[in-house]
Write a protein that binds this DNA or RNA. Sequence first.
DNA 1: TTGTATGCGTTATCAA
DNA 2: TTGATAACGCATACAA
Lengths: 339, 339
Amino acid sequence: MERKPTIKDIAKLAGVTPATVSYVLNGNNRVSEETRKRVLSVVRQLNYRPNMSARALVRNRSYRIGLFIPMSPRAFLDPFFAELLRGLTEVALAYRYVASIIYANGLREVESLHIRELVDGLVITEIKMHDEYIRYFYDKKIPFVSLGRGSHKHFEDYVVADAKKGIREAMKYLYRLGHRRIGMVLGPLGYEYIQERYRFFREVQEELGLSFSSQYIATGANSQEGGKEGARRIMLRSTVKPTAILASTDIMAVGVIEFLQSVGYQVPDDLSVVGYDDVQFSKYIRPSLTTIRQNVYEIGRQAGTMLISQLEHLPYKKPLQIPVKLVVRNSTTVNKENL
Amino acid sequence: MERKPTIKDIAKLAGVTPATVSYVLNGNNRVSEETRKRVLSVVRQLNYRPNMSARALVRNRSYRIGLFIPMSPRAFLDPFFAELLRGLTEVALAYRYVASIIYANGLREVESLHIRELVDGLVITEIKMHDEYIRYFYDKKIPFVSLGRGSHKHFEDYVVADAKKGIREAMKYLYRLGHRRIGMVLGPLGYEYIQERYRFFREVQEELGLSFSSQYIATGANSQEGGKEGARRIMLRSTVKPTAILASTDIMAVGVIEFLQSVGYQVPDDLSVVGYDDVQFSKYIRPSLTTIRQNVYEIGRQAGTMLISQLEHLPYKKPLQIPVKLVVRNSTTVNKENL
DNA sequence: TTGTATGCGTTATCAA
DNA sequence: TTGATAACGCATACAA
């Protein structure tokens, strides 16, 4: 009979009661060094691992964590989430948790989900109306970690990428290539991370002593179409054209390139284009895209660790910032005006 | 006090014992219609939902299912898995299960995972050495559903796409465009789904009365590089060049196109190229890719339903076949030789 | 057709 | 420092 050993088996073999075994396993220190050793040796010997269902029942936990994703066609096709989930899953399994996607479209759908029956806590991504969700989960006392800071005062359980450094690297790189008139095509400003990328763009512009012109800025949907449209507006209304364009996401950069090519510009010879994210297709398009890469997998890992630490009342550092870096490919080159 | 109602609360209010409530909830029909109604009404009234942890403990289940993925850098960047997981997650949640990724690289790593502690069952994807995994899980009596059939005799819990129909549509489409010399660039034949796509290619060739020439066939890694290499070999060794090439995956098609362009061919004017899968980047590359689309989301849903039905001993149809369809974009056009 | 009693594997309370 | 024992919420064998 190959039945899995239970806490009782351990207790019997170690000559103690289940309670004592439980104490040992849970780091309760009101137990003598001697019995602790004895118990642990039996645990190893039988390769005992606590039954998570039983533990879940008595501790009123599910040992599941969720990656909260706003339901939208885009969401799941975005490799960003897949990478995130990979990182999250990995730390989850290490702690004997399980990570799952939880998706819902809007707070009303969230209400109907009975989130606490599904998971012990959530990692929420940089969704639209981010603040609303943060407040909601905060008020409902649903444990969560946020990707992106939000605007709440007393909330520090978040992980962010060092977007400023990314933007700065990209801009400095363009600057060194001789670019002075740098435009930006932005996604919807309702998203915190878009706002942030724009703000840093402005700040770095100042650092570099570049003048600002609203002619070179356009917003649009976070899509290929949006990128095309943004590029079109910038190119049509500017008398002196920009020599480089930074897009707030890779997918918009694709649109930018497409528009430029459609009206006869060569990328990067006539105009350099930089993306943001480094999603999978960035290296497949022609020209391959120079872009700012976030280590999304690492973000997932850190967020997962933070969430589980919070759930288990373990100490942890918060908030957390993850580095980013510029990946140079073929959509950028020297500004020939300066040659 | 807003405590969640338990089975005891229901029992008390309905004037029965917890056992009776349990019978009603689990469809045990040795209970009178009258008490059943009474119980159900109380259940609805208190919005009672069984505690899954308790149920998990007593039934020795975790109510988690896993999507088994061979750990590899490629795996997670592949939108195929993301889509699959989306479908799986959706049915899982409907049944109050939770879906998670389980990844491992090789059977040895699987061994160390204690899979049955993590999940009640798996959906396994079309991995290399597929058969080995099928046999392993089969022998270990770990419930699972396979994507792709494998070669086992008495195993029918699988979901497949109708690849033959997809290949046929693509080839017929090329045929109608005047193409007669159609080549194929293939990924590693160790994968069942690659073998299958090749086999159907051959069968449809016969159907269409096209002659076969091994000159037009090349295999390589399932990657952009592999696609380039395959196209190179086909183009170098053939005296009469093919007018169209079918790639076994989109990513290989990208490589094929890249090679052709690099040696001065125009796609689609000189050569038409067709991919398979319709992953995200297929519409972003230039020319955008004509490809065979599988409804991966639906495959995920069906596989999930099959797995849960198996776990819960519900009746279900097996095996299952999902339709595919050709998506025509800009990498294919009429064969000008025939104009 | 329904109730009683017991067990699932842990953790936690209270004594000892 | 340890042991009995009672929960946790549900399912089920057996009795009534």
